[in-house]
Design a protein around this nucleic acid. Structure first.
Lengths: 130, 130
DNA sequence: AACGGCTTGTTATAATATAACATTTATTAA
DNA sequence: TTAATAAATGTTATATTATAACAAGCCGTT
């Protein structure tokens, strides 16, 4: 049985902040928070973020340079991510739709490229902002 | 008949450089190029980029903070973009697949969000790097 | 000519991210 | 257990990406 990944001190601190947040967090706003707890420099945050991304515990919203906790249970590796983003309130939701995942994971283009990963971001207005 | 959008001087300069390039260009590498031709400051480049994005003449590769010319004829508005990105040589290809476009344009998630736009980035190894 | 809209020019600065190097802690393997 | 190795940390400095704020110019319309 695979043991749950144990996070280091800094990784834990950064992860907990992202997990508790209601929306995507930016690296420097995370830094601001963890400065109360001993982390002093951007690099310490970025290193933790890198590791958490690698583990699939968090995802990066590329269009926003911001980070969210993964909401899919047992997400271990980040290789197929999809998000909806409200352009007004900036609410971000991770899309967990097996048909979509299937469709994209099996997508082949004409260039003969072998895909190992994708990231999809939908933009629009959420229910409230519509 | 809709007249072709006329670009301003700076917009043209920036567009031509992106169009001629073999791959995605970063803002500051564009700046370096156009400095020979009179543009001096980052903001002048970013303003041109913003306008070109708005017109759909170029797209931004979000995961790379880089810009490519749109390869689809008559692309006027950017609302449905898909790219394949080689993680080794960084070659980027715009995917123009009507089935994919259809599938994603009509995708509905369970949150009731109304989408107006999406961006999809596939990652992997291209034919050469595989 | 006067107005309005867009584009430009310019300086400064904000926001995001990594380089380089020294040290410490944890894990593995003899 | 101890030496070797790998992973994480701490720290200073700096690179890279992007925007704020304000002044001025260009161009079509009225």
């Amino acid at each position: 049985m695979a043991q749950a990944q144990i996070l280091s001190k800094n990784q834990q601190m950064v992860f907990q902040i992202i997990e508790k947040a209601k929306g995507p967090l930016k690296a420097y706003s995370i830094l601001y928070d963890v400065q109360k707890k001993g982390i002093k420099a951007p690099l310490q945050v970025y290193r933790a973020l890198d590791k958490l991304l690698e583990l699939g515990k968090i995802h990066k919203i590329e269009s926003r340079n911001a980070f969210v906790a993964c909401k899919n249970s047992n997400c271990e590796i980040t290789k197929a991510t999809a998000f909806s983003i409200c352009e007004k309130c900036e609410k971000v939701t991770e899309i967990n739709n097996s048909k979509l995942t299937n469709y994209l994971s099996n997508f082949q283009d004409t260039t003969g490229m072998k895909y190992s990963k994708y990231n999809l971001e939908f933009f629009g207005l959420c229910k409230k902002c519509k």
